[in-house]
Computed example of a mutant assay.
Amino acid sequence: MKKTLIIAALAFFGMANAQKGTILVGGNVYYNTGKNSVGPNENKSNYFEFAPMVGYQFTDKWTAGIVGGIASQKNENTSNLNPASNTEQKQNDFKIGAFGRYTIPLGETFAAFAQLEAGYQGRKDEDTSFNGFFSTTTTSKASGFFVGITPALFINMNKGFGLNFGIGGIGYETLNYDNNGGDFSQFNISFGQSFNIGISKNF
């Protein structure tokens, strides 16, 4: 049975009091680790993600800026029948793009906003096999683009600090691998399937 432990999950979505002429700075940090045993095989996984963002609030409702992100994933598979033999998969991702946000105040305490993001992304995969004597590594690279829209609710707590609640969104992404390695595309609707809570502050 797979057991996954979420060590940290923080999301910063800057909006604060929706004040014209303020600077938005934020990002999210997420770490996940898991262990899964099936028969004689044991699999360990680790995932880390950091996605910063910075923007400028042009009006009380419109904000625009830059988003980025890096992510690293590692999976190790070991056989208890032959501990010297194992496989390892590493995946490193990065993103850079722009975002636009439209905010609708619902009073002094609440506000709703929708954020549209789009940009370039890249990926590097490394697959390594070790038989106890020799190791073989295969590397592949890919690039593509991403676009997505995410609605959320903001609650102003005190002096511009607040909480943000998101319940998923709509996204589309592509990755094209080098050396005829194949293409990847994905359309995702995650309303009600994911949930995050964050804090925010405008400067």
Rank of each mutant, 00 (worst) to 15 (best):
T78S: 07
A18P: 07
A114N: 15
F58S: 05
G97H: 02
Q89W: 14
A114V: 04
N131D: 14
V38H: 15
I104Y: 04
K141D: 09
A114P: 06
A111F: 01
V147G: 14
N32I: 07
Y30W: 05
E108R: 09
R123G: 13
G26E: 00
F12A: 08
G14A: 08
F12L: 13
Q121R: 13
F48Q: 11
L24Q: 12
A64G: 05
I96N: 09
F133V: 15
N17P: 04
F130L: 02
T103G: 00
T103N: 07
A16T: 07
R101D: 00
P105F: 00
A18E: 10
A64F: 06
T139W: 01
I70Q: 00
V25Q: 12
F99V: 09
G14K: 07
A64Y: 05
D125I: 04
M53H: 02
I66N: 10
K141G: 03
E42V: 11
G39I: 11
G132N: 14
T137W: 03
Y31F: 11
K44P: 06
Y31I: 15
T33I: 11
K141P: 00
K95W: 04
E76D: 09
Y31R: 15
N86Q: 10
N17Y: 02
S85M: 07
L24G: 12
I104S: 03
D127F: 11
V147C: 13
T138L: 03
F130V: 03
S72L: 13
A64T: 14
F113T: 11
K74W: 00
Q91M: 10
F133P: 01
S37F: 10
N77F: 11
G100H: 01
K141M: 07
F110Q: 01
Q121V: 04
F146W: 04
A114G: 13
N36S: 06
Q89I: 14
R101P: 04
I149W: 02
F110W: 08
R101G: 04
K35T: 04
N28S: 12
V54P: 00
A112M: 14
R101C: 01
G21M: 08
F58A: 10
I149D: 09
S37V: 07
T87G: 14
A16H: 03
G107N: 03
E117V: 12
